[in-house]
């Protein structure tokens, strides 16, 4: 017959471990895709953190995934920076997706300077979102980007090939984009369990 033990006492003795409460999201950053928003713990992109987008191949859906968020950000007057994109952002399509081109900046940098440029953009806090395509990013440089995104409270997106999914990463969110079938798989999301089921891609033209 156990004696009545007060809960406070147990907690004070550190014998009962209490799960850490979720950090309150500082600002809601919906992705613009209802199914994806529902699956993510914060109801959208993790604010002021690095999100990794793992692509099956070139041109298989990172823009479909990001365009709604970028359109919302540029519409709010925030600046979106593309650091060394692999291809030319084609204005008619970006405009058709609702993006205000006046708020879009394109930084041309060699591979070794690109990470520096991304870090500067993130740290400055003057951008709404920074997109980059790191060629060979190791754990260290991704962690730097993650810290810079926290410092500048900016959304950071790193698009990488899907082979990188095998390595651990400090990113707060990792989404794999599959081309066939067209779907998203959340591999890791900070503050919650990653949903098992893949999410069907929406907005495919």
């Amino acid at each position: 017959m156990g004696a009545v033990v007060s809960l406070d006492g147990l907690l004070d003795e550190r014998r009962v471990w209490k799960g850490r409460p979720l950090a309150q999201p500082q600002g809601l950053q919906p992705t613009g895709h209802a199914a994806l928003d529902a699956a993510l713990p914060g109801g959208g992109w993790p604010p002021s953190a690095l999100s990794e987008i793992l692509l099956a191949a070139d041109g298989c859906g990172e823009l479909q995934l990001l365009w709604p968020s970028l359109a919302r950000l540029t519409g709010n007057g925030e600046r979106v920076v593309l650091v060394a994109p692999p291809y030319i952002p084609y204005p008619p399509a970006w405009q058709a997706a609702g993006i205000d081109l006046r708020q879009l900046a394109w930084i041309d940098a060699a591979a070794d300077e690109a990470l520096w440029a991304v870090e500067q953009c993130l740290r400055s806090g003057s951008c709404g979102a920074v997109l980059c395509w790191p060629k060979k990013a190791d754990d260290r440089s991704l962690r730097r980007l993650q810290v810079a995104a926290e410092t500048g409270q900016t959304l950071a997106f790193a698009c990488r090939p899907q082979q990188a999914a095998l390595n651990p990463s400090p990113a707060a969110l990792r989404i794999a984009v599959d081309a066939r079938p067209a779907q998203w798989r959340v591999l890791k999301c900070r503050g919650g369990l990653a949903p098992r089921a893949p999410i069907a891609m929406t907005g495919q033209g």
Binding site: L104, A105, A109, E113
Partner: peptide, 16 residues
């Protein structure tokens, strides 16, 4: 700052 390190033409916008 970016232009100082990456070159004068490094930061651009896109126009349709």
């Amino acid at each position: 700052r970016l232009r100082a390190r990456l070159g004068d033409e490094a930061v651009q916008g896109v126009q349709a």
